[in-house]
Design a protein around this nucleic acid. Structure first.
Length: 865
RNA sequence: GGGCGCGUAGCUCAGUGGGAGAGCGCUCGCUUCACACGCGAGAGGUCGCUGGUUCGAGCCCAGCCGUGCCCACCA
């Protein structure tokens, strides 16, 4: 270590992430370490494809957590020497991006319709130029070790070509087809959307009971509906075939009020006799159930509500041009006037809303492109069943299977302008589907674009150059693991598996880690619109504490390491509340590690090097404990159990390395013992390497000060392994217990904190650690002296406290009484347990033996008092 | 309606059959030459409720209560 290093370490008494992290991030990026050569095979290499964030989005807490997980995995594998690629890119995010730009246009007093499609696309690309780099910059600041030299975008020319090829191939196989069918129409985005983009919300509507007179004038039937305006499109009335009340009416006709159309009374088992009146109006044009019934009975499909949300020419003249809600009011008012409404009840139920626009879904029959999923689903079910793709935790397997086994066709066309335009052209009745435009005159391209998730489904291989047989594809596909939250298992994970199998013959990853969702501190969803979001960058660099926190004020600059550690530590179950305390704990950990390193690096000789040369029992102890911690943390990470890995790391650094080992060896370090310097450096470097995947910045920074260290810690290091040493563990474990017992006694007995207390060691097993006990408990051992004023039990015997001015005998006496009472209680409990014949006969022998030994110990201690 | 979770110290959470733990907060004591974003020692839980299995239950089983999320075509 140079003098400059030394004086720098001397002065930097606190770890300052705000100063360190940007500097380290820059070194990583310059190193080229994150851009692996496209060599070897996917089996020997390691790769993860990032769930591509929206191109114009910014890093939110979900990303931060997910990226901490992926980076821990990526860094760990890279350090082990594998070629490791974290595939990076962004998603064009059709509806989301288009909506943002449309909002901008509105604020400029124009609209996409006014400026036209071509100009609109220009504006979106401009928007992308302006905001597209933001999240990438944030990932760099976060320390995510993605391959930034190889960034993809789902609308790149090559990617677009892959999308078109997939479309054409599936069309040629007959899986993709055009059809008039009922879809979820989102009036907000004026597009069809898929079932997965719809969410059900509780609303209170009015249930209207409306009389439909029989055509023969002989009475009427009453139907119940919450959407009276759709009656304008009724094409039948249905009853349950087993419903005796209406059996005689089947085949009869009723007159549709306000319209006058004759409707046949049909029978269908779907109708629930107990609901309403047991008579259901059938509106195939505006209700998914009615649509199905209509198709099976061959009914007409009338659309009285158009894609613009207005009443169409299919309805009576006087309703035309009204919005659906206006039409409802008009219909109800006319029905009321003619006395056709028999009842109105408030009715609570769930109705579909668009997740995107938040508007109520209008089910419509529409001409759209669909994709049949059954053929693709079967192999995707098979790979999971065979365990070639595994979910972690495994409970998600069932969620996946249930959905896949009941999969329905997917509406893939969207009436948007931002996205992959369908590779489809029309001329009169002709349809042409191909990757390039058809020859000849008069062809018109389909204006629609594909659902964003269609292109996302190709992500793991389209990013690597598919359909070309690139070296990247060979080296990094299939990827190893997919890390995501459970909300996109269907939207994305399932579809990637299906597409991967169909087009590459292999599943795109072998493991799927479904991680916890971080909720706001108050338990609500973290979301910008709810005001419950927390910006990860505010935690990293310091920023205002948002209103979800009661305290207010500003976050300190915790740094990316603290955020990463905190997020990993807090998230074990499927939902977890955000806890700022955990982030603060992460900062403590980085500061602790920094200062432990300062102690070691400023204490050892300049020519000291890491080495395995344990001489004292505590050296063997720390090496053994490190070995265990290393194994445990490694296993936890490999099993996607990041919270326990993070907590185990904290426990090792605090509870073993700093609290005990460093305290135990301070005298030897000051004395300049070369062996202890070697062990200290060895353990320090080992700890840095072990923690690097979780807290990369501070570990890299410290590594730069290790004497003789070359290159980057992120590249991995060679470290000789020690072995577990049970003897050393038990010997040091014993002295730790003894020190704690002595400190507790001192505190209780009100002995002055700094006082050295004369004592006599009346316990065995301290041959190697007698001096440690004396120093850490501030005792001065002697072999003579008068009667002890107190006797403190420690493992293997007692420490007898000799009279001195430092010890208040009254306090010592109180201590003794308390201890006596505790001992008596515990002895009674233990005796009772051992007197229980059931326990002695049935419990395992070692449990019983341990209980007997404990009882003896307690009795001996009581005797000594 | 079906499924997946959760309910343990004031707060956020570990703990899956043999004497209740961590971090933060709180109390007491320490300006001990790595760190006051520090060190040491404490106080504080009938482990949601009720039954059951077991020699023994925070942990296993059943039911109930509370709470969060996902899926689902009852007008």
């Amino acid at each position: 270590m140079s003098d400059r290093d030394s004086s720098e370490l001397e002065s930097r008494t606190r770890y300052d992430p705000a100063e360190v992290e940007p500097r380290i991030a820059a070194r990583w990026l310059e190193s080229g370490l994150f851009h692996p050569p496209a060599e070897g095979t996917a089996a020997e290499n390691y790769s993860i494809a990032i769930p591509p964030p929206n191109v114009t989005g910014s890093l939110h807490m979900g990303h931060a957590y997910q990226d901490a997980v992926m980076d821990a995995l990526t860094r760990r594998h890279r350090m082990s020497g594998q070629r490791t690629k974290w595939i990076l890119g962004t998603d064009h995010a059709g509806i989301a991006t288009q909506t943002q730009v449309e909002r901008l246009l509105v604020s400029e007093g124009t609209s996409r319709e006014q400026i036209g499609r071509e100009q609109f696309e220009v504006r979106v690309w401009e928007w992308r130029e302006q905001y597209g780099g933001q999240i990438i910059g944030q990932l760099k600041r976060f320390g995510a070790s993605c391959d930034y030299d190889d960034e993809r975008f789902t609308l790149d020319a090559h990617y677009a070509d892959a999308v078109a090829r997939v479309f054409v191939a599936l069309y040629e196989k007959g899986y993709i087809y055009r059809d008039r069918y009922m879809v979820n129409w989102d009036p907000g985005s004026r597009s069809a959307i898929s079932d997965l983009e719809v969410e059900e919300r509780e609303v209170t509507d009015t249930l209207f009971y409306i009389d439909y007179p029989l055509a023969n004038g002989d009475g009427l039937v009453t139907v119940a509906t919450v959407r009276p305006e759709t009656m304008l499109a009724d094409t039948a009335v249905a009853v349950n075939p087993g419903d005796d009340r209406y059996r005689g009416l089947i085949g009869e006709t009723v007159i549709l009020p306000l319209v006058g159309r004759e409707l046949t009374i049909i029978e269908d088992a779907y109708v629930k006799p107990e609901f309403g009146t047991g008579v259901l109006k059938i509106t195939p044009g505006h209700d998914p159930n009615d649509f199905a019934i209509g198709r099976s009975h061959g009914l007409d499909e009338i659309s009285v509500i158009g894609e613009d949300g207005l009443i169409t020419a299919a309805a009576p003249e006087r309703f035309r041009g009204m919005t659906a809600m206006e039409a409802r009011a008009a219909v109800v008012s006319e029905l009321r006037e003619q006395g056709s409404i028999r009842r109105e009840d408030p009715y609570e139920h769930t109705v579909p809303f668009s997740q995107r626009s938040g508007e109520r879904i209008e089910p419509l029959v529409s001409l759209q492109w669909f994709m049949s999923m059954d053929e693709l689903a079967n192999p995707a079910i098979e790979v999971v069943r065979e365990g070639r793709v595994r979910f972690h935790p495994p409970s998600n397997t069932r969620v996946y299977m249930d959905w896949m086994e009941n999969i329905r066709p997917w509406v893939i066309s969207r009436q948007l302008w931002w996205g992959h335009r369908l590779p489809v052209w029309y001329r009169g009745d002709e349809t042409y589907v191909g990757v390039s435009p058809p020859d000849g005159e008069g062809w018109e391209r389909d204006p629609d674009v594909l659902d964003t998730w269609f292109s996302s489904a190709l992500w793991p291989f389209a990013t690597l150059g598919w359909p070309d047989h690139t070296p990247e594809l060979r080296a990094f596909y299939p990827t190893d693991v997919l890390v995501t939250a459970r909300d996109i298992i269907f939207l994305w994970v399932a579809r990637m598996i299906m597409m991967g199998l169909e087009f590459t013959g292999e599943p795109p990853f072998s493991d799927v880690h479904i991680h916890a969702i971080i909720q706001a501190p108050d338990g609500r969803r973290m979301s910008k619109s709810l005001g419950t979001g927390i910006d990860p960058l505010d935690l990293i660099e310091g920023g205002p504490r948002p209103p979800v926190f009661a305290e207010g004020g500003a976050f300190p600059a915790y740094g990316a390491d603290a955020l990463r550690w905190g997020l990993l530590a807090m998230a074990s179950s499927q939902d977890v509340r955000f806890s700022e305390e955990r982030i603060a704990q992460g900062l403590q950990l980085t500061n602790k590690l920094w200062n432990a390193a300062r102690l070691i690096l400023l204490g050892v000789a300049p020519d000291a090097r890491p080495g395995l040369a344990p001489v004292a029992v505590e050296d063997r102890w720390i090496l053994s404990r490190f070995e265990r911690a290393s194994n445990e943390i490694g296993e936890r990470i490999e099993r996607y159990d990041f919270s326990h890995a993070a907590l185990a790391l904290y426990d090792f650094v605090y509870g073993e390395l700093c609290d005990w080992y460093l305290e135990l060896v301070k005298p030897r370090l000051r004395a300049g013992e070369p062996d202890v310097a070697a062990t200290l450096l060895h353990v320090l470097v080992g700890t840095l390497a072990l923690s690097h995947p979780i807290i990369p910045f501070v570990t890299e920074e410290i590594y730069g000060f290790i004497p003789g260290a070359k290159g980057l810690l992120a590249a991995g290091i060679q470290l000789e392994r020690a072995s577990v040493d049970n003897g050393a563990e038990s010997s040091v474990g014993r002295v730790i217990e003894a020190v704690q017992a002595m400190r507790a006694w001192r505190d209780f007995s009100e002995v002055r904190a700094g006082a050295i207390v004369p004592a006599r060691l009346g316990a065995s097993g301290y041959d190697d650690t007698r001096e440690h006990l004396a120093r850490l408990a501030r005792l001065s051992f002697s072999s003579d002296g008068g009667d002890p004023v107190a006797s403190v039990p420690v493992p293997g015997g007692v420490v007898e406290i000799l009279p001195s001015a430092e010890v208040d005998t009254g306090a010592a006496e109180r201590k003794r009484d308390t201890r006596r009472a505790t001992l008596e209680q515990e002895i009674e409990r233990s005796e009772r347990k051992l007197a229980n014949s059931g326990f002695v006969e049935k419990a395992p022998a070692d449990v019983v033996r341990a209980e007997r030994e404990k009882l003896e110990r307690l009795r001996a201690e009581l005797g000594a008092l």
